[in-house]
């Protein structure tokens, strides 16, 4: 996957030189390890800033909503699905974007790796299969497969579903993964146990809204949590308010979430916020045979009516 960068640069350079796009959105090296930053490249000279490795977990589709320029965008499987979702929701036009597709082999979980390290990690060197981390007085080599982000480990859409250029041959899709083991576990709990489970899950939330900000689906001009007239949800650290925020955030992603993992990656407290969106994703798949962002041809379940809707009350 590391070798992709030459092709990414080559395509970006060409697109900018031929004025096919006004900018290319990609990644540049972050100021701290394992945190590559989004990067808007507007000149050919800046193309060399671009990088590609296993720290490109941010979903770049997040930077497309309501843009008017012509944009080249580097897109993994999940990013491409969110671009499709943006096009369906009229946040960007298909002919405005040149999608540079990246067949993805998964991003690494910085929370997990940080937890394994004895001290602050100062350097991370990766090969195609290994991640070597170094810090004051320690050095460790990890198997990349063992430290993938959870959503990447169970990903079944690694290849971009929509693209104009592809930087390498498609990778093999995973088929033998169980995507919803954790959701089934929660579903099996009693209401009281569920209550306690979520109370515990959210107990460390500081309401920084990092999960919302990282999410490409959250593009409302004013988010319901920031609204004060009317104030839909209290702004306190009270567990009722925290819970309301998380559940409403998740519901806004119903039928739209691609499980890109940007929310969980962004969380400074390491809360598994994907558990909420995954339940909705599972329901959409089981009840409506729907996976978000796979096609421009079909309308999403929340804006279609079917006479054979699985819920009786609406038929």
């Amino acid at each position: 996957m590391l070798s992709y960068i030459d092709k990414i640069k080559e395509i970006s350079r060409r697109l900018l030189k031929e004025s096919k796009v006004d900018m290319v959105i990609g990644f540049r090296k972050g100021t701290v390890v394992m945190m590559n930053e989004p990067c808007f490249v507007k000149t050919v000279a800046d193309v060399d800033k671009l990088v590609w490795d296993s720290n490109c977990g941010i979903n770049l589709a997040n930077y497309l909503a309501n843009r008017t320029e012509k944009i080249g965008i580097v897109a993994k499987g999940c990013d491409s699905r969110n671009i499709v979702t943006h096009i369906i929701e009229n946040k960007i036009k298909r002919d405005q974007v040149v999608i540079i597709g990246v067949p993805c082999k998964g991003m690494i979980d910085r929370h997990n790796i940080e937890a394994m390290a004895e001290a602050e990690i100062q350097e991370v060197i990766e090969t195609d299969d290994t991640i070597q981390v170094k810090g004051a007085g320690f050095e460790k080599t990890l198997d990349k497969k063992e430290v993938l982000q959870e959503n990447c480990a169970i990903c079944v859409h690694r290849n971009p579903v929509i693209y104009d250029e592809l930087v390498a041959d498609e990778v093999k899709e995973q088929t033998d993964v169980d995507r919803y083991e954790d959701v089934r576990h929660i579903e099996a709990l009693s209401p009281e146990e569920k209550w306690d489970f979520f109370e515990d899950l959210l107990s460390t939330c500081i309401r920084c809204y990092g999960c919302r900000n990282a999410c490409p689906l959250c593009y409302c001009p004013t988010c319901f949590v920031d609204e004060s007239r009317p104030q839909w949800v209290g702004k306190s650290q009270d567990s009722t308010d925290i819970r309301t925020f998380h559940f409403l955030r998740a519901y806004h992603c119903a039928g739209r979430c691609t499980d890109c993992g940007a929310c969980e990656r962004a969380c400074p407290m390491g809360i598994k916020v994907r558990l909420f969106t995954k339940k909705l994703e599972k329901d959409c798949l089981e009840l409506f045979d729907w996976e978000a962002g796979l096609t421009l041809e079909k309308r999403p379940p929340l804006d279609t009516y079917r006479p054979d809707d699985p819920d009786e009350f609406i038929r």
Binding site: P191, E192, E193, K194, W195, D196, F197, F198, R243, F247, D311, F313, I314
Partner: peptide, 13 residues
């Protein structure tokens, strides 16, 4: 989320 069955109901009227 831990709400008892029956407390939350939906209807189309």
């Amino acid at each position: 989320m831990g709400i008892e069955p029956g407390r939350l109901q939906f209807s189309w009227i």
